[in-house]
Amino acid sequence: MGAYIARRLGYSIITLIGVATILFFLLQATGDPALVYLPQRASAADVEAFREAHGFNDPILVQYARFITNFLTGDFGESLNFGRPALGLVMEFVPATVSLALAATIIAVVVGVPLGILAAVKRGTAADTLLMTGALTGLSIPDFWLGLMLILVFGVELGWFPISGRGGLDHLVLPAVTVGVAMAGSLARLLRSNLIDALGQDYIRTARAMGIRWSKIVAKHALKNASLPSLTSFALQVALILTGVFVVEVVFAYPGMGRLVINAINQRDFAVVQTGIFLAGVAYVLLNLVVDVVYTYLDPRIRLVAD
């Protein structure tokens, strides 16, 4: 078990070095990295001074080694627009994004789990078709557009919720629903198919033959076995859907990390962009690691193979 975690940890670090490498070469591919960091109106003398000061005139391997070392030690450079270290700046916006992501996940679980169970139990009926078409529709709606439509209906027409910024819980409702809809759809589909799989197993037939109540069989035996694979796939999808949070933050003018980074892209504040992308990479890798370890812990069959 320990060896397994250590190996997975090693892979994670390699992946993060890889992410930093991609960011480095993305810069080099532009032809002149110094220009990317500087405002477009910078004079030739300014550019040369910047190059000299930040070592852009050094051999490329030296630059690469410095870049990676800086990243791994948490030095992501300075933000041009804010004139302060990019890491500290981005970190200030992380809590807002995390709370939005958490709220969206809660909505997804509260909506997606019951619908998935219902669809699996009622498999093949009109209710199942309706629920699954609904789930698929949820996955098919572009989040930025859904956000605008929610603003129109619940913010403008009904005036129930604030439509921008960050404040109390009410500010979180519309953005969290916007992100949560696709997540709920995805979770309901996953859970349904895993649950149907579990319900087809021999031990379910045995339980039925023993006269155990159907509701108890579903809740106690099938659901338990279906939730593990669903959880794994869902955790990975959360990571993917979460990049949607970034766009939704823009729509709701929600002061999170995504809005900060997207604004930084538009203003060519590349240190902030790199920091944001790298931190998102860290979050993805950590989530994967945790899921893998938890899965191994919960499922003894995998533990045997891993050891």
């Binding site: 992946t15 992410v19 990049t243 766009v247 992308i277 998102a280 990479g281 993805y284």
Partner: peptide
């Protein structure tokens, strides 16, 4: 590595 990049951003 590529999957660890936040796609859209």
């Amino acid at each position: 590595i590529q999957l660890a990049l936040p796609g859209l951003v």
